[in-house]
Design a binder for these strands. Sequence first.
DNA 1: GCAAAAGTGTTGGTTATACACCCATGT
DNA 2: ACATGGGTGTATAACCAACACTTTTGC
Lengths: 229, 229
Amino acid sequence: MPFSYEYARPALTVDCAVFGLDEQDLQVLLIRRGQEPYEGRWALPGGFVHVDETLDEAALRELEEETGLRKVYLEQLYTFGGIDRDPRERVVTVAYYALVKLSDHKVKAATDAADAAWFDVNDLPELAFDHREIFEVALARLKGKVRYQPIGFELLPRKFTLTQLQRMYETILERKLDKRNFRKKILGMDLLVALDEVQKDVAHRAARLYKFDDRRYRKLVKQGFSFEI
Amino acid sequence: MPFSYEYARPALTVDCAVFGLDEQDLQVLLIRRGQEPYEGRWALPGGFVHVDETLDEAALRELEEETGLRKVYLEQLYTFGGIDRDPRERVVTVAYYALVKLSDHKVKAATDAADAAWFDVNDLPELAFDHREIFEVALARLKGKVRYQPIGFELLPRKFTLTQLQRMYETILERKLDKRNFRKKILGMDLLVALDEVQKDVAHRAARLYKFDDRRYRKLVKQGFSFEI
DNA sequence: GCAAAAGTGTTGGTTATACACCCATGT
DNA sequence: ACATGGGTGTATAACCAACACTTTTGC
């Protein structure tokens, strides 16, 4: 045991609640544990923080190692420091949440990692450790933050229709929005760019595609604009 | 060195930005460091997390040890994990912010602790480590959160006047509010209880005192109410 | 031609903002 | 009597919520 300290130190880990949006549902990515404790249980992806990497780096590294995901939107959530979180020893975990465009990543996450799968947030299996609690906090944060920061776009493909956008909000916020009012509001913010392009392969009138203009968003924020759904 | 581990572990600390409200200004509580590194520099109160205490417990313990403060409003802020935060070794810190009623605590903090002092947030000395950054994040959080959660009351005495309340918001948000509109709005929320009591020892008409009704607030929240200034 | 979703305005109610004077109290 | 802050109402503008029909497209 080459590393010794004068006082006992908690182990430090990162864990990550990764959200993705299916056609109809909000989903979260879980991995199945291969070792004790909680062997065979589903858990949030995560692992130990190396001494030479930042917390963000650790979260990104673990995500890639365990699920194959890269370049996701990642944000620190909360640090969980309960004394008996882990039955082996004291472990403090810095929790993150991530948002991914399922359309891009669906296949990868299912194949690259041995045992990773998406679950509907309303139908989760029992989770290892206190991961259920971490998940609840992450979901609450997502629900809160999506209303006043334009992070929801991270769940959609780069080009999306207004109906997809509206459905995303309806799914996360768990309430219906009025189509006309929604369109008025979101277009009025002047954050979406209408593309010269429409949906393909749909059995009805094809909707116009839009993209989110991040550069413009940041400019508006500097001028005091604040996003709100 | 009795504690050995297979892999190197970062040290884990807590640090705390304590805010108080003077008649005119928002202040933050700093302590002067007695040891290297940064000996003699001002810093946020904080210290190492013991292996048998939660993070919240560590923050409260350090606060009391270093500043004499007890029973403050405390909330986890963010965890800072930069690799070179501390010149000695890798230290990850879980930052908190606290709000105290200066009226109650002013003397204590100045006497119990050898070298603790309140500083105007707009006139801070150079701080040790990355404490300036932690402070900035804490202040931003306070400014953001005070608008949509009734945490500002933690900075005022239990009994306060509407003018004190308004000044608190004006100080934190750094903008003027309209007196009549402010009163209409805050009284309309039905969260304040008018006491049968007025200010004493003032050289003008004495203002009515109010208190915040926390029980009522929680009841309203359950019914979907959301606080906003 | 029919099924399915796209796209589009108006009205009424609520909420936010701007604004100024008289009142009570202590010195 | 004067200085200081306490306390109060109204009118206008902006925003939000409710609501239904026509258009386009693929089959």
